[in-house]
Amino acid sequence: MKFAEFPTSNANALVTGGARGIGYSIARLLAEAGARVVIADLEEDAAVTAARSLGSEAVGYGLDVGDPRAFAALIDIVESEIGPVDIMVNNAGIMPMGPLADESRDIAEATMRVNFWAHYDSFRILAPRMTARGRGHFINITSAAGAIHSPGLATYVAAKHAATGFGRSAREELVGTGVTLSVVMPSAVRTELVDGIRFSWWERLGIITPATVARRAVGTLRKRPAVVGAPLGTVVALRLYHLVPEPIWLLGRRIVGADRTLEPYDRHARAAYDGRIGRQSGEPGAGESADGASSAD
Rank of each mutant, 00 (worst) to 15 (best):
S9R: 15
A58Q: 00
L63P: 09
M185L: 15
G178V: 04
S104Y: 05
A214Y: 03
P96Y: 04
V218H: 00
R204M: 15
A144I: 06
I75T: 12
I277W: 09
P225E: 01
A127L: 08
A154D: 11
M185D: 11
R28V: 10
A70M: 06
M130L: 01
G66I: 04
A269W: 04
H149K: 10
G55M: 06
Y24H: 13
R105W: 13
G23D: 08
D291H: 12
T155A: 11
P264L: 03
A145T: 10
G136H: 07
T220K: 00
D102Y: 05
S169R: 01
A188G: 11
I148P: 03
Y156E: 01
G55S: 06
G252D: 03
E57W: 07
M112N: 10
T111L: 08
T111M: 05
I107K: 00
G178L: 03
A132L: 10
G252C: 02
S143Y: 08
R222S: 15
R171M: 07
A237Y: 09
P210M: 07
D266F: 06
E283M: 14
G136M: 06
P245Q: 02
T49R: 13
E246P: 08
I22C: 09
I39F: 05
L42W: 04
I107Q: 06
R253N: 12
A144L: 12
R253L: 15
T111W: 07
A118N: 06
L29E: 14
R124A: 15
T209I: 01
G196Q: 07
A40M: 04
A162Y: 07
G219S: 04
E5T: 13
V85R: 02
T131A: 13
P225W: 04
D297A: 11
S80F: 03
I255E: 01
A271C: 09
P151W: 11
S182G: 02
A214D: 10
L251R: 13
V59L: 14
A158S: 14
M97K: 13
I77G: 08
F116W: 10
V175Q: 13
A214M: 05
